[in-house]
Design a protein around this nucleic acid. Structure first.
Lengths: 258, 258
DNA sequence: CTAGTGCACTGGTCGGACCAGTAGGCTCTG
DNA sequence: CAGAGCCTACTGGTCCGACCAGTGCACTAG
């Protein structure tokens, strides 16, 4: 074990060092969202590299969602506020390449959502509670609008209201990581079942049941019974999505219901 | 609402279309991990764009973790098997830019880890159970090695064994998404407290307690009591990490213990 | 004072050039 | 004939210079 421990000298490319420096500036706060980078021609002077190198670095930064550049902009590239877009992207390719099953995604949502509800039951303010109530009410309205014959559009409104509910919950939980992850996974799940959701034979029954489940959750949350609310929310999500999951894999979902 | 609905024609850059095509080829399976892309000079012919454009596209693909290129390689860029590296990267910047608190990260781990244990209690094979036992045994060994005076290195061994335990659990849970996310968040947490972990006044007590907690979890898991095992695992993680979380934020962690 | 017009700049793309590396065929040697 | 070494034809990484279509701003003409 004696002697100096040499590190393998990986050839570090020029553009990587540019990326590192800019990244560091952003993460350290020296560059804040809305701020501008110097122009490419200015950057190539500052880093004393060619414009190609600068551009490759900018492409990487852009792929990571840190900056955006627009042609003709007299200012340089814009530093973006963080968006989960990059996270979303990599999770989506994960879902497609690594054969993430729908069951796994729904399971993940059951876990995160119920955790959010458990936390929200503790930490929610009255205002946030009212927000959730309003969302459930909007779901009910969407259902009734569909029943009276409008037919189309109600599903959209229902989905929007449902989203508003879960969004309010997850914000009340106070955990941004849960917020972002549920958001990402949710949209992936929706995209996966997008085709089949329209074919649902009795969508109204599904909606009615979902509303009932949400109301139960709200009651438990109002009573401050977090664990109950969390359990109910898992059941709610199971009821809503289990139909899209192959029977063979539903067992793994039911394991979360006990 | 009449008339054709025109979409805004966003100027799509040449390199983006190259990225799209290659991405599509990978996700559709036309290009499989280990496979090679044509050389940059060949690509510029096939796409009829300049090499700069090809290279910018390759940089984006590389940033997304889909390909890797090595100078001098007579074959073109290599198509990589999916790794959560890109996910890891974006979550790390999320943690740094979005000011994710340590409390939020630990909370997230408590949620995911306990869910994994809940699932593993149901789905684990005997082999996986043995793997977990072995990991706990290794933790005990590391502790004893430290006690007998070696002093250094035991912490490393302990951490490795702990990692092996959680890895076995998470694999037994059968949910790759949970596996990847716990892995990512775990490493971020460790990096955040890396400096302080060495200053721990009574690390041995912490390790002893952690082992006890793990043994309790194992007992519950062996008995098939998933909910109990999950609850115990949350407590274990709380015990281990709460010390690094400011008191003010520990309440949010304790909300998961009930 | 306003409306219109240039102009100076931006990013996007192209083509060509050079370099340091690699891999595999080649030759030369034993 | 087998093996060790060189050689060449590639590779990706970097640089340079050029052109284009846009954008914003200052300036000018009305």
């Amino acid at each position: 074990m004696g002697g100096p421990r040499f590190e393998p000298v990986r050839a570090v490319r020029a553009y990587e060092r540019v990326v590192e420096q800019v990244e560091e500036a952003i993460e350290s706060g020296a560059l804040t969202p809305g701020g501008r980078l110097p122009s490419e021609r200015e950057l190539m002077v500052q880093f004393s590299v060619s414009r190609s190198t600068v551009r490759e670095a900018l492409r990487v930064l852009q792929a990571r969602g840190l900056v955006r550049s627009r042609p003709g902009d007299p200012n340089g590239a814009e530093v973006l506020p963080f968006t989960p877009a990059a996270l979303h992207k990599s999770m989506t390719t994960l879902a497609r390449v690594e054969e993430l099953s729908l069951a796994e995604l729904v399971q993940f949502r059951m876990v995160l959502d119920s955790a959010a509800i458990l936390l929200a039951a503790r930490l929610r303010t009255e205002e946030q509670l009212a927000e959730m109530d309003a969302a459930v009410a909007a779901m009910r309205e969407a259902l009734e609008a569909g029943e009276t014959g409008a037919g189309e559009g109600d599903a959209d409104a229902f989905g929007t209201a449902d989203l508003a509910f879960h969004d309010a919950v997850v914000r009340a939980s106070g955990n941004k990581l849960i917020e972002i992850c549920t958001d990402v996974v949710r949209s992936i799940v929706l995209k996966l079942i997008a085709g089949r959701i329209a074919d649902e034979p009795d969508r109204e029954a599904l909606m009615r049941r979902s509303i009932g489940n949400h109301e139960e959750v709200m009651a438990a949350m109002r009573a401050g019974d977090g664990p109950l609310a969390a359990r109910l929310s898992r059941k709610a999500m199971y009821d809503y999505y289990a139909g899209y999951v192959p029977e063979r894999e539903r067992g793994a979902l039911r394991a979360l219901l006990e």
